[in-house]
């Protein structure tokens, strides 16, 4: 009698143990399947994002870069001439500004003169509301050839290029080695917010135009 009870108890205990193990195993299996599914979903999402990013990065937009006009000019009239260029876009506006500036620093391709001295690098770009703060390396000051006209060409090629091509940017502040300078080459007031100015562009016919076309020859 006692022996039979002990055997039944042992069988029941074994059955419970097996059931428990089976339950635990199935739970673990389900959990692992869920994790795998989640991982798979994440991978798909990431792949989608990467693809979208790559698409955005590889898509190009046409931008207008302003360089020093090599043609007839009188005073500050007709100082800058635009040059179209294809630039890869970026969802990050800051990166886009850097790409445009790098194209500008790279120099002209269609007969214009460079407006920024060689060897200049962009150190940082900050975007605050509608203001773009651009920090250049010291060469923009030390290698500048001088003179009011070239100083104007340097400053307004940067300002007009950025404001014309980056949506939402209306003002530009230029820093040199992280600091404000009163002038770039000893003439023009630099430590202020600079706005887009069409009056230095070729073909400007606005009210600020004081030199007539016939006098340009």
């Amino acid at each position: 009698m006692n022996q039979r009870v002990i055997i039944i108890f042992l069988i029941l205990t074994l059955a419970l143990l097996v059931t428990g193990i089976l339950l635990l195993y199935s739970c673990e299996k389900r959990k692992q399947a869920e994790i795998r599914e989640e991982e798979k979903a994440e991978t798909i999402q990431t792949e989608e994002l990467i693809t979208a990013d790559e698409e955005a990065a590889t898509s190009e937009v046409s931008v207008k870069l302003y360089f020093r006009n090599p043609g007839p000019a009188a005073g500050t009239v007709g100082l800058l001439r635009p040059e179209a260029r294809q630039i890869t876009t970026s969802p990050d506006k800051r990166v886009f500004v850097i790409k445009i500036l790098e194209a500008l620093l790279g120099g002209p391709r269609s007969g214009n003169f460079a407006s920024i001295p060689p060897g200049v690098a962009v150190r940082q770009v900050f975007l605050v509301d509608n203001l773009a703060v651009i920090d250049f390396s010291r060469e923009i000051h030390t290698r500048h050839p001088g003179g009011v006209l070239e100083e104007l060409a340097t400053i307004y090629s940067i300002v007009n290029t950025i404001v014309d091509n980056v949506p939402g940017v209306e003002r530009v502040r230029i820093l040199v080695e992280g600091e404000e300078r009163s002038t770039l080459a000893g003439h023009l007031h630099l430590s202020r917010n600079l706005y887009h100015s069409p009056r230095y562009l070729v073909g400007w016919r606005g009210p600020g135009r004081i030199i007539q076309e016939e006098n340009l020859q």
Binding site: G75, V148, L152, H187, L188, H189, R192, I211, N215
Partner: peptide
């Protein structure tokens, strides 16, 4: 040319 008005520091 004509005189030129600018933001001279």
């Amino acid at each position: 040319g004509s005189p030129v008005g600018e933001q001279l520091e």
